[in-house]
Structure formats: structure tokens, C-alpha cells
Nucleic acid binder design. Structure first.
Length: 560
RNA sequence: GCGCCCGUAGCGUAGCUGGAUAACGCACAGCCCUCCGAAGGCUGGGAUCGGGGGUUCGAAUCCCUCCGGGCGCACCA
């Protein structure tokens, strides 16, 4: 059972906000009602929180923001009894608040009191009951996963984890583009390699997939069926080679994803949607809504009515549905069964955003679809550019990267920047065990705490209480607690703004605050109360770090 | 030509639902291990936030425009 304990600092803040609101109504009855919101100022000397209400009231009050802030504070102080604040100061129009140490001390007790559940580090509820559909990484089943997909996987999985942490009902999915021309090329490529086993002069298709990964697939068929397919008609062998190849390659893609720590709730086959008639139904749906017209024998979907820059064909003049028809159908399915629908696309898909948003709006789901682009990646090894051209032998697969740098570095580097921001991924840096490498900094923080806790041994009680926690007064101690308290809000921000990089930075900040505290304050000290309180702080910090890293898909080692 | 993404300190980036002297890491200069992991900490220098207009009490953030870099613009997927 998860106990929801209100946060002392939030209670105090809310009470003060109410007092300011009342003061505003009393002093400036003609001004519209203002919402008193608080934010953490950048500069620590401005306190823990600040509000800028005075600026919005100034024009109605016809006084300077400075005067208004001062008047609000004076008035709010009347009838507002609290010892929560060390200072309440109007400065240059802002109202700056600094909490008394006991507020942060209570926060630490609260964090520790709710231990061992997810809620031990805060209990965000923003997502309760909301269904999320999150599609990311999807690729043609024609080859192994490559580096850019690794980034999409990292971003998508971190988002999914963050949202689940906030209570969202998250459904992750991958669409397999196993219909159409690409899969046919795959089937023909495998067939050619198959024939070449017995007849090396058998021609390889000009537009075939030259990658080496095709060869063992052909070999597997040969080992199993021998020459059986050699004299079969194309109508027989082609579907077989397509399906066999798809299964092999999708299987390999799944294995790579799982190795990377990413699991999906659904691997949706495009072919299956065709076979079930879903695509036709999707097109019919558009027709019913009066959103289509015929021209030159093709059926167009009027996407320009919804912000796209040109209308899109859904049915070709030969009657076959386009890929976009699949988009329409599949997105319609996703939109219906979720409250928020998210696509993470590769960097070469910028042009798709408007047509996808258009179809969502057209089908009656405006503002429900978010399309995120995972930015391009330039691979480096030290100062050397690593070629990623798709010519044979040159593709850098995700597996290659994982072999070279490991999951932790890859996962962290891929989510470290804003999703759409271009990333230069330095393979040499990712394995460097020095301070240029951000992954180790955070993991080191976690390992260092684990080490302290080991040294504390059996005698090191972490059962702090009201009395012992009062020992925590050093600025680095209070700053660390304040940082830990932010955690649930940071995760909520990640989920809401689809910005997992914020969590990577936050983890770094936590580690940084811990290291500062560690340097300034001896944890395993003689004084029992101080030792207990500091150990408790260590445990909570470790929990937050572990939790943050887990969301990012990075391990939290106890020793390294 | 049109659309989208990016342009912030020497380098890599955060901040973009508008708020105070623009933040973080690396690099650079200096300092801190008789003590729990120095894979650490502290201090310092370094930025006309690509340029120019506009809106606002207030703009890196919103609007317009121009310039650079990238990616797309198929009855391919």
C-alpha cells in the first residue's frame, strides 16, 4: 500500500501562495485573479523558490512591481503564521522564499519513510489512468538494426519507463514493414544467395541487399530444404523466401533490442493488417468522412485541409494501397485505443510530421498525436569519422556498437541530448574511464555511496528520526535533499515534454550534489545522530540515482 | 523552390508553455588526499544566445525577415 505523504515544502508553498492571493484581492480588488506560481530561481542567493506575481499585478495596481511585491509580502505576513521560511523577501519585483532547514530535514524523513516501493523517491501521479501508445524504432525487416535506431530505442524506452513511473498505462509498439517492394527485394536477395550455394554464377539482383547477413539466412534454408526450391516457380518460392527472411531478420532485430534492454508490447506486422483487410477499412473510413477524391484514377486523401502541404495518395491508380494508407490505418487504430499517441521517427522522416498530424486531425484526434524525431548521429572514433554508408561492409550495426562500448555508455549517450538534436557519438569517449565521460560520473556516484554503506557495516544504522535529522544543516546537505525532492517532478517533466535528456542531466546533478556533500561532510563520523542522518541521506540519494538510471536503461553498479 | 530540424563560451550542449547578473560538462589557470572510493571537490578567466526588425514592464525563449548547416519533398517503403 502506498502512502501518499504530502511534501512539507509544497504545503508551505501552497499556504504562502494562498496568502499572497488573498493579499492581492484585498489590495487590488479591480485586478483580475492571479495564479501565484513558484519556480526555483537560477541563482541560489535568490532562495529556494520565487514568484513573479507582482509583475502581472503591476499594471492594474499602477505601481511598480517592486512596490507591489513589497505590499504583497507585508500584507501576506499578516495572519500567515509559519516557521517554514527562513526568509521571505521582495527583491526587484520578485518575492523570494528561503526554507528553514527543518523543512528540508522533514523532506528527508518523508523520502526515507516511504522506502522500498517506487514511491521511496517520490510518488508522481500525473499519469494515472491515461493510455499511451508509443511507437519507436520501427524499421524495414531487411537488415540488422543500425546506430540511429539505437538512439530511437534509447529515447523511446526511457520515455516509456518515465511514463510508467508516473502511472501512465504505456503500450510500446513496433511496426514491421513487411509488405511491398522492400520485402520483395529481400526475398529475391535471399533466393539469389540460396541459388549461389549450388551455382556461384547465379546472378544477384541489381537492387538486392548486398549485406553479409543475407548469406546465413540462405544457408539455413539450404541446410533444411536442400535444392527443393531450385525448380519451384517464382509464385511459390518468392512468398516463402520473403516470409522466412522476414522472420529471421525480425528475430535478429528483436534479439538486438532485448540485448539493449528494450522490450515491446507489440510487433505489428504490416502484412497482417493488409491480410485482415484493415487497410481497406481505413481507406473506407476516409471515404465515409468525405475526405477523399479521385484524380487520374488514384484516390487522394485531402490532407491539405489539415495543414499538410500536398494531398496524399492512398490508393494507386492500379488499385494497390500506398504506404501512407498503412499510416492512416495503423494510426487510426492507435489513436482509438490511446489518450496520447506518440511516434518516434528517424532523422530522415522530417517530411512525415505534417502528413501524420494531418491524418490524426482528419480522423477526429487533433492534438493527440506527437511526432518526435530522433536526431541524426555522426559516429567518431577519437578524431576519426566512422563511415556509415550503407554499402556492404560499411554499416555500423547496433550490435557492433554494443560490442565496442557496452549498453550503459550507448544508452546514456543516446538520451543525453534533446531527442531531435544531432549527436556526435565518439566511440573512444564512450569507453573512456575518465572525467570526459559522463556515464562514469553518475555511476561512480552510485558506487561510491554503496562503498560508504559497506564501510558503515552492521553498526551503521540508517534509521534516522526527528532528532538525528536535525544534524543536517550543512549547505551541501540541504542542497542535496532539495535536489532529491525534485526527482518526481523531473520525471513528470520528462513524460510531459517527451524530453528524456532532462533525466540524464538530472542524474548528473544528483551525483554532483552528492560528491560536493561527500567532500564537505564526513559521513562515518563519531557522532551517532549525525552519522545516522547522513547515512539516511546516502540511502535516499542512492535510491534516486538507481531509479533515474533504471529509467534511462543504464545499470547502477555497487562497485566499479 | 517548399517543408521540417539545428545555429547559445575554444569544443559539446541545456534552457525555448517569456522573468532577476544566460546554465552544465570538457578544455584552460590555480588550489584540495595523515580521513568514508581524487573515476572526486573548490576557485577563476572565457558568450554582442547566427544577423536584423517587431510584440512586451521584461525576449535565448513568441512573431516576421535574412544568413549558415543538415534532412526531406514518389501513385517507394
Amino acid at each position: 500500500m502506498s502512502r501518499i505523504i504530502a511534501e512539507p515544502h509544497a504545503i508551505a508553498l501552497s499556504a504562502f501562495g494562498d496568502a499572497v492571493g488573498a493579499a492581492s484581492r484585498a489590495l487590488y480588488p479591480d485586478a483580475p485573479a492571479v495564479t501565484v506560481s513558484f519556480e526555483a530561481p537560477r541563482r541560489p542567493e535568490f532562495g529556494d523558490f520565487a514568484t513573479n506575481v507582482a509583475f502581472s499585478l503591476a499594471k492594474f495596481a499602477r505601481r511598480s512591481p517592486q512596490d507591489v511585491a513589497r505590499a504583497l509580502v507585508d500584507r501576506a505576513r499578516d495572519g500567515f503564521e509559519t516557521d517554514a521560511f527562513a526568509s521571505i523577501e521582495p527583491v526587484a519585483g520578485f518575492i523570494n522564499l528561503k526554507f528553514a532547514p527543518h523543512v528540508w530535514q522533514s523532506e528527508l524523513l518523508r523520502l526515507a519513510g516511504a522506502s522500498d516501493e517506487a514511491s521511496s523517491v517520490g510518488d508522481p501521479h500525473g499519469g494515472a489512468g491515461k493510455r499511451i501508445s508509443l511507437e519507436f524504432g520501427s524499421a524495414n525487416p531487411t537488415g540488422p538494426l543500425v546506430v540511429v535506431q539505437g538512439r530511437a530505442l534509447s529515447i523511446g524506452d526511457a520515455l516509456a519507463n518515465a511514463m510508467r513511473f508516473c502511472g501512465y498505462d504505456v503500450f510500446t509498439e513496433w511496426i514491421i514493414n513487411d509488405a511491398g517492394a522492400q520485402i520483395e527485394r529481400l526475398g529475391r536477395s535471399i533466393y539469389a544467395r540460396y541459388r549461389q550455394i549450388a551455382d556461384p554464377s547465379f546472378p544477384f539482383p541489381e537492387d538486392g541487399y548486398p549485406g553479409e547477413y543475407i548469406v546465413p539466412i540462405a544457408r539455413a534454408i539450404y541446410d533444411r530444404d536442400g535444392d527443393a526450391w531450385t525448380n519451384a516457380p517464382e509464385a511459390t518460392w518468392l512468398p516463402f523466401f520473403e516470409t522466412f527472411g522476414r522472420d529471421e531478420i525480425v528475430g535478429a532485430q528483436k534479439r538486438t533490442a532485448e540485448r539493449f534492454g528494450v522490450r515491446y508490447d507489440l510487433w505489428q506486422s504490416e502484412k497482417e493488417l493488409h491480410d485482415l483487410g484493415k487497410i481497406r477499412q481505413g481507406i473506407e473510413r476516409l471515404r465515409e468522412l468525405g475526405l477523399t477524391y479521385e484524380r487520374d484514377g488514384a484516390l487522394f486523401f485531402r490532407t491539405t485541409d489539415f495543414g499538410d502541404d500536398k494531398d496524399r495518395v492512398v490508393l494507386r491508380s492500379d488499385g494497390r494501397p500506398t504506404y501512407y494508407a498503412l499510416d492512416v490505418t495503423y494510426h487510426y487504430e492507435k489513436l482509438k485505443r490511446s489518450d496520447r499517441t506518440i511516434d518516434i521517427l528517424g532523422p530522415d522522416h522530417h517530411g512525415y510530421i505534417s502528413r501524420l498530424k494531418a491524418l490524426a486531425a482528419a480522423l477526429g484526434f487533433p492534438d493527440q498525436l506527437d511526432v518526435l524525431i530522433s536526431g541524426q548521429i555522426a559516429l567518431m572514433r577519437g578524431n576519426e569519422q566512422v563511415s556509415m554508408s550503407k554499402r556492404a561492409g560499411n554499416i555500423e550495426t547496433l550490435d557492433d556498437i554494443l560490442d565496442e562500448v557496452g549498453n550503459d555508455a550507448a544508452r546514456f549517450f543516446f538520451v543525453m541530448l534533446a531527442p531531435e538534436s544531432p549527436l556526435t557519438f565518439d566511440l573512444a569517449l564512450a569507453v573512456a574511464r575518465n572525467d570526459e565521460n559522463p556515464v562514469y560520473y553518475v555511476q561512480y556516484g552510485h558506487a561510491r555511496i554503496a562503498s560508504v554503506l559497506r564501510n558503515a557495516g552492521a553498526g551503521g544504522s540508517t534509521a534516522g528520526n526527528d532528532a538525528s535529522v536535525r544534524a543536517l544543516v550543512h549547505p551541501t546537505e540541504l542542497a542535496l535533499i532539495r535536489r532529491l525532492v525534485e526527482f518526481p517532478r523531473v520525471v513528470e517533466g520528462v513524460a510531459q515534454h517527451l524530453a528524456p535528456h532532462r533525466l540524464a542531466r538530472y542524474a548528473r546533478d544528483v551525483a554532483s550534489d552528492f560528491h560536493a556533500f561527500y567532500t564537505e561532510c564526513k559521513i562515518l563520523t563519531e557522532d551517532a545522530a549525525t552519522r545516522e542522518a547522513r547515512l539516511m541521506l546516502c540511502v535516499d540519494t542512492k535510491n534516486v540515482l538507481a531509479r533515474a538510471l533504471a529509467i534511462l536503461g543504464v545499470s547502477a553498479p555497487d562497485a566499479m
